[in-house]
Design a protein around this nucleic acid. Structure first.
Length: 276
DNA sequence: ATGCGGACCTGTTAGC
DNA sequence: TGCTAACAGGTCCGCA
């Protein structure tokens, strides 16, 4: 489900509803996510206030007086705001109930997501401390990619999907950004020129911003915290369009698998190998 | 240090 | 119609 634009959309939806709110109850229906939800969570959270909410890559951080709740939505997770007396959805695993009567509901069919607690600096948590820069921040630059790529042997697509290189670029937006920058996804990251990385950096930023503006991409079941679907799926130029014609040159789009992920590109427009 | 495949899960769809 | 296999928005872990 969620890449950076989807997480950002969820973040913007829940922030005004739960900031400074008091947690009146925490109900865990199923502890078994990617890692077990800490047993002590209801005890730790109840009575606390949400002091700040932050997104780091695809992680959401909910800070209270005593620590931080680290939430990752995995492949199929979602957060929904509902009245506290709502009926439970299928695959609804956690409810965080606030004194304003709203419940923040964690729903995740595949349970690849995670809900963890830390009382230390969350950015130094094992899962977050090695993350690369935020793609929409100033320190995400062409030079950063170019320098980092020198010691990388993988393809450009796997390179930009590596969260140690840059966070938030998942399969959909990796495909779209490489198409926009006219780079073949199979091309070695180390063979891409600084000039081409300048174009790619611009395209990644532009596509992520544009997707956020459109509320993210709803392929099957993604929706924001109020149940609203995204619309960026209508703007996709290559992802999911294998066999259809390139919007630029009418060549048939090709699909391959790269690192077990579906990869779609235009063999004509994205012909950049070593040259640029 | 880097890279690869497997693992974690359920649901939907394509193909026979 | 029904069964099976492949695939789906992520990413950690163990091993080479």
């Amino acid at each position: 489900m969620p890449e950076l634009p989807e997480i950002e959309t969820i973040y913007r939806g829940i922030e005004p509803a739960i900031l400074n709110q008091r947690i009146s109850a925490v109900v865990v229906i199923n502890h078994q996510l990617r890692w077990p939800i800490p047993k002590k969570l209801p005890q730790v959270l109840t009575g606390q206030h949400i002091k700040a909410i932050q997104r780091r890559g695809k992680y959401l951080l909910l800070k209270t007086q005593t620590g931080t709740l680290i939430i990752h939505l995995g492949m199929s997770g979602n957060l929904q705001l509902k009245p506290q007396n709502h009926t439970l959805a299928k695959h609804e695993h956690v409810n965080i109930v606030f004194s304003n009567g709203l419940a923040l509901c964690y729903i995740d069919p595949r349970r690849f997501g995670a809900i963890l607690w830390t009382d230390k600096d969350p950015l130094q948590h094992k899962l977050l401390k090695n993350l690369g820069p935020e793609p929409l921040d100033r320190d995400f630059t062409a030079k950063h990619l170019f320098d980092r790529a020198k010691r990388c042997h993988s393809s450009i697509k796997q390179f930009i999907m590596n969260s140690k290189v840059v966070v938030g670029v998942g399969n959909i937006y990796a495909n779209e950004a490489l198409f926009a920058a006219k780079i073949n996804p199979l091309c070695k990251a180390s063979s891409v020129s600084l000039e081409r990385y300048q174009l790619l950096t611009k395209k990644i930023k532009a596509i992520l911003r544009y997707a956020i503006k459109h509320g993210g991409t709803t392929l099957r079941d993604y929706s924001d915290s109020r149940g609203q679907k995204g619309s960026f799926q209508n703007k996709l130029k290559v992802y999911g369009r294998q066999g259809q014609l390139c919007v630029n040159c009418k060549t048939k789009l090709k699909q391959i698998r790269l690192g077990q992920r579906s990869t779609v590109f235009c063999p004509s427009c994205q012909n950049l190998a070593i040259k640029h």
